[in-house]
Amino acid sequence: MNLPKYNEIMPYALAYFAENGAQKWRHAEVPLAKAMNVSDEDALLEYASGNGKVFPDRITWALSALAASNLLERPKRGVYQITELGRSFLSRPQDVHPYVKEKAEQRRLEKLRERSETLPELVNDSTDTTPSEALESAYQEILSERYDQILDTILSKTPRDFEHLVAKLLSKMGYGGQVENAVTVTKSSHDGGIDGVIKEDVLGFGRIYIQAKRYARDNSISREDIQRFVGALAVAQSNKGVFITTSRFTEHAKRYAQELNGSTNLVLIDGIQLAKYIYDYSLGMQTARVVEIKELDSDFWDDMENDGD
């Protein structure tokens, strides 16, 4: 197999979108293969696991990395176009991958600071990384990319669509149980600060109220926003609410929610947690590939006598 690595595809991808404008990524596959002298035979090669073709997969990773570094942008789902920053790299293709790599490291560190979670290091060629560690690291990197794609896609839809998406997610998560049409979206013109309602029982005695805010990812939900929602819950004579956003909550907002001390049961779900739920509950997702790794069954093999015993 003589295929370019995904980082080698990046400069050619920038050149393609600079010349052709906004395009669906699938339209770039054949021109990129031609530009990089990839034969028809090599372009059709599939992974040994049977999980799809190698070359298109590398193209998608190259485009995602370029978009994450703001060299490309997605005006709508599946479509890419070059940015002004991307155009500045056309005359120095050798600098594209180092720049993308630097930006990826900055994002990794920012996520560590924002979420206070230790994410595995990116896969590299270090000799102190075991194959299992490299596999786990690659898996976490793919998850992070998928979460970004989910949020980018949500932000390309309307706020009303987001409210319906949240209702579908909560239903898929099991809220409302067996109650028919348990999760409903309120009318936008008279919602009173409530975007949706979950009926917990058939007669509707128990209700959970929903606030859904489709904000840009660098925005934040303030304490005042949470207070207004708590006020709306009081008007609705309920002490159960869930506030879901594509952005994040300020520390003051999170502290306020925690200090309600049971007078109001309020759950806050930020953008990253929302993306995780959508991924984990397979809402609008499909399985792209399955990798099965087996290990020896010790009980099976230990029942046999060792040679020389």
Rank of each mutant, 00 (worst) to 15 (best):
S188D: 12
G271I: 02
G196E: 10
S263D: 10
G206C: 12
R248H: 08
S282I: 12
L260S: 04
D218Q: 13
A232M: 09
D225A: 11
R214H: 11
S188Y: 11
N265A: 02
K254D: 04
T287K: 13
V197F: 03
A275I: 04
M285S: 09
K199I: 11
I272T: 07
K213T: 01
R255L: 10
E251M: 12
A232I: 07
L203C: 08
T245L: 02
D280W: 12
S220I: 07
G241F: 05
H190Y: 12
K213V: 04
L268E: 01
L283G: 07
G193T: 10
G262F: 02
A232S: 15
I210M: 06
S238V: 04
I226P: 00
I208E: 06
L283F: 02
R248N: 12
G241S: 02
K240S: 06
L233I: 05
T246K: 03
S188Q: 15
R255P: 00
V197C: 10
N261C: 06
T250P: 00
L274P: 01
Y215W: 15
A253Q: 10
F205S: 08
G193M: 07
F229W: 06
A216V: 10
F249C: 00
Y281R: 07
S282N: 13
K213A: 10
F249V: 00
G284L: 08
Y215D: 03
